[in-house]
Structure formats: structure tokens, C-alpha cells
Design a protein around this nucleic acid. Structure first.
Length: 479
DNA sequence: GTAGGGTTAG
């Protein structure tokens, strides 16, 4: 029998009643740790198969926790795929495809798509949005277009929704021009709507090309489509993003003059926009105006203001705003805490930052950003041991380190010029490759040099082999 | 996962 800790096992129940109890619930944290620890696929299969009570939700949670350990995540997915009584959901397949795509394992992606189809679970439009996004972010936008155009060959109908989702993928990856070209070709066939236009306008705003965004908006009006509040909010955000604060403010006034029913998103955009420009007083004034106008601030509005106060005012005022938010009955989310924790770290109040990190656990789980911020500032302060303690806590499986975490820590291993630190750097480098991350050439070379200079030739050889395996050797270099 | 508002720091 697998011996997984459960909450019920902590309670001391009389043995006589234990028989009538339902099977203990499966705990994602315990199972995730079991998967991470296991180096024997056979016994892991045994463990996973013996457990009953698998649900799509539980599988999703575990896949999410294993997100930063791609190889393990896929192993888990595959082992469970042969479970006698559990069948993967479409969402689990999508998740596995996303992970394979991030590992640039294109063969596995398409094998999973085929398996999905043979089980009549899809592939769905969402599956294709995932695949397209990964191709685009790998610099293969043309391939992404081909994938979209061949959706129907994989048994997935193309429609306006999937067209819009695809345009959005291109725009979010800063390919607005390409999206606009495709849009013009296919808008008739898919009956492009306001949402399609908003996506394209937003794409140009992301590239700070406001005139292009306005052009799209104009064209939309000429074709008889009415701009929505989202259209206006998109352009408003565009002005501020492009650093055109005055134009943004004028646009905001114009929205009010035209009696557009502005909402919390509109106000949050302006608060954030003024804040980034260092106009703290104006940001506060707009926040007050909002309340006066009877528009209820959202958690995001508070997040924007707290961030502004942290960056352009002082963290003490940010804490006051945070407390004000609690008094009014808001529940802060992970972004609220992350913004405030970053502010505290930046002000050198590391102990307080850690306090807030603990407090955070009552409302939500710390995210990878939370850990990375704390680790980064500990490293900057030369508190490398403390950074490593935080890092060790992550290995528990609630939030595994990502590429940034490894890069931050590896860089920190060079500041003290200690031989032991270089060994840790080497260990971190090995571990990150193990978990499916691809270090840059620069990182490899740096660790390699460090190990050579500190007399760790043996380890250096190992790293060199790893670098070769990853295809990250310097040009003209042969082992 | 068909659109708009908050996340590090460079």
C-alpha cells in the first residue's frame, strides 16, 4: 500500500470506526512530493494506480504544481493515462500539451493531439490556441499560422471564436502587423466582429503604435461597428503605455464628455498610468474621484494604487492603503501581496516582507513572483544563505522554482568568490536542466569558468558534457 | 483560452 500522509491520518481515530470511513481524500501536495521524490517509474506507477478517487480537478492541481518540472509532469500524465479506472479529461490533455510545447517537444505535442482525438476528447479550439502560442513564442509564427489553418484537418472546426483567439495570440506576442494582415484576408470568411477589432487595436497599443490603433478603430466605425467600452479602455491604456500621459488624460475626459459609462477598469487604467508617470497626487485624485462618482474600486484598483505608492511615494503609505483596503472588507489577492512585498524589499525592510509573505498564506498561496522577489533582494543584500533557505522551501512542491529563480541564484553564486558557492552554482545548473529549463550559453560558460578557476576540473567536465547535450556549446567548440 | 484594468527588474 502506498503510504501517503493525509489530513485524516493526523487525527487519531479509533480503529473500530476506521472501517466505515470513506477512503481518505487524495492530497495534491503529498502526491506531488511523492512524484518529485520518486526515481523509480515502476513503483510510482504502482503507487498512482493503487490510489483510487482520481478526479480531473486533482490531476489539474498536480499538473499545475509540476508546471516547473516539465519532465516529471509529463511522466505523471503518462503513468496515469494507463490507470484502470481513471480517464484524463480534455483539460488535462491541454495541460500536458502546453508542458510538452514549453519543452519544445513537438513530437509529443502531436502525439498527444492524436491521442486526444482517438479518445474523442478533442482537440479543442483551446488546444490549438495553446499550440499556436507556443509556436509563436518559439519564433515560429509562420508555423502557428499553418497550424491554425489546418485545424479542421485535426477534427476541430474553425469559427469566429478560434479566429479571434488566434489573432490574440499573435497580438500578445507583438505580432500585430501579421495579425492585421491575416485579419484583412479572413475577416469576411469568419465575419469579424467588435472583438476582432479590439484585439487588433490592442495589439498595436502593445507596440505603442497608437496611430495604428486609432486607424483600426476608425475602420471599425466605417464598417458600421460600434466601439465598446473595451475599445475605449484599450486605447486609453495604449496612451499611458506609450508614455503619452497628456493625451491619455484628454482621451479620458473625452470619454466622460461623450457620456460613456466608464467603469473600474477605466479608472484603474488612469490611476496606474499616472502612477507610472510619477504623478502620485493625480493618481490619488482620480482614485477619490472614482469613489465620488459611485464606481466601486476593485482589488486591481487598490493594487495599482499600492504599487504607485511603493514606487513613487513611500512604502509606509502603501501599507496604510493596504490596511484601508482590509478595513473596507476587500480580500487582497496574490498581486496585492506581491506588489507590497516587493516595495518592502526595495525599502530594505526584508523582515517585514517575510512577515507579509506569512500573512499572505491566509488569503492565497505565494506565487513564483513572491519567492523570486524575496530571493532576489536577499541576494542583492549579500544574504545568500537566507536566499538559499527560501529556495529550499520551494522544493516542497507548492511552488517549484522557475527559470528566473535559477538565474537569480546562479548569478548570486559569483559574488562571494567562494569555491563552495561555485559548486552550488553547478548543482543548480544541473538541476534546472533536469527540470526542463534551457540555460543560456552565457550561464553555462560562466559556471564552467568559475569551476575551472576554483580547481573543480572534474565537475567542470560534467558541466561541459551537459552543455553539449543541451546544444549550448560555444561556436566551433568540440568536445 | 473570443476583447480591456495590478506583478520582479533590466
Amino acid at each position: 500500500m502506498p503510504n501517503l500522509p493525509t489530513t485524516t491520518s493526523k487525527l487519531t481515530k479509533p480503529i473500530s470506526t476506521a472501517y466505515s470511513l470513506p477512503p481518505p481524500p487524495l492530497h495534491p501536495a503529498a502526491i506531488t512530493n511523492q512524484i518529485l521524490k520518486s526515481d523509480n517509474p515502476q513503483s510510482l506507477t504502482q503507487t498512482l494506480h493503487t490510489l483510487s478517487g482520481w478526479t480531473p480537478n486533482l490531476v489539474q492541481t498536480i499538473l499545475k504544481r509540476l508546471w516547473n518540472h516539465g519532465p516529471k509532469a509529463l511522466q505523471f500524465f503518462n503513468l496515469l493515462d494507463n490507470h484502470p479506472s481513471y480517464c484524463h479529461s480534455a483539460a488535462a490533455f491541454d495541460h500536458a500539451i502546453d508542458i510538452a510545447a514549453r519543452l519544445r517537444d513537438y513530437k509529443t505535442i502531436w502525439a498527444l493531439v492524436c491521442r486526444m482525438r482517438s479518445r474523442k476528447l478533442g482537440p479543442t479550439p483551446k488546444t490549438f490556441a495553446i499550440i499556436a502560442e507556443r509556436y509563436v513564442s518559439a519564433g515560429k509564427a509562420d508555423k502557428a499560422v499553418k497550424v491554425f489553418l489546418s485545424m479542421h484537418e485535426h477534427g476541430c472546426q474553425q469559427d469566429l471564436n478560434s479566429f479571434n483567439a488566434f489573432l490574440d495570440v499573435l497580438c500578445k506576442s507583438k505580432r500585430a502587423e501579421m495579425a492585421y494582415r491575416l485579419f484583412k484576408i479572413f475577416r469576411g470568411r469568419f465575419r469579424a466582429d467588435v472583438i476582432s477589432y479590439n484585439i487588433i487595436a490592442n495589439g498595436f497599443c502593445l507596440k505603442k503604435q497608437i496611430p495604428r490603433a486609432l486607424e483600426v478603430m476608425k475602420e471599425m466605425v466605417e464598417r458600421g461597428l460600434e466601439p465598446t467600452l473595451t475599445t475605449y479602455n484599450t486605447l486609453l491604456k495604449g496612451y499611458f503605455r506609450a508614455g503619452q500621459v497628456t493625451e491619455g488624460w484628454v482621451f479620458f475626459l473625452e470619454m466622460k464628455k461623450r457620456n460613456i459609462d466608464i467603469d473600474a477598469v477605466t479608472y484603474t487604467t488612469v490611476v496606474h498610468g499616472f502612477g507610472v508617470a510619477g504623478e502620485v497626487e493625480k493618481a490619488r485624485k482620480v482614485f477619490d474621484e472614482m469613489i465620488g462618482a459611485g464606481v466601486l474600486p476593485s482589488v486591481a484598483t487598490y493594487n495599482a494604487l499600492i504599487q504607485v505608492l511603493c514606487k513613487k511615494d513611500c512604502v509606509e503609505n502603501a501599507v496604510l492603503m493596504f490596511e484601508d483596503m482590509l478595513r473596507k472588507g476587500y480580500v487582497p489577492n496574490a498581486t496585492t501581496y506581491n506588489v507590497l512585498i516587493r516595495g518592502l524589499c526595495h525599502a530594505g525592510k526584508m523582515d517585514m516582507a517575510i512577515e507579509y509573505m506569512d500573512k499572505m498564506k491566509d488569503d492565497c498561496d505565494p506565487t513564483i513572483q513572491t519567492y523570486n522577489v524575496v530571493i532576489r533582494y536577499y541576494c542583492d543584500d549579500g544574504e545568500i544563505e537566507k536566499a538559499l533557505v527560501v529556495f529550499e522551501k520551494m522544493s516542497g512542491g507548492t511552488c517549484l522554482p522557475n527559470l528566473d529563480t535559477y538565474n537569480i541564484l546562479i548569478s548570486a553564486m559569483f559574488v562571494r568568490k567562494k569555491s563552495d558557492d561555485l559548486l552550488i552554482a553547478g548543482k543548480l545548473l544541473t538541476e534546472m536542466v533536469d527540470r526542463g529549463f534551457l540555460p543560456r550559453k552565457f550561464t553555462f560558460n560562466r559556471v564552467l569558468n568559475g569551476l575551472m578557476l576554483t580547481g573543480n576540473q572534474g565537475f567542470a567536465q560534467e558541466i561541459l558534457r551537459l552543455q553539449s547535450k543541451c546544444g549550448r556549446l560555444p561556436r566551433h567548440f568540440r568536445l
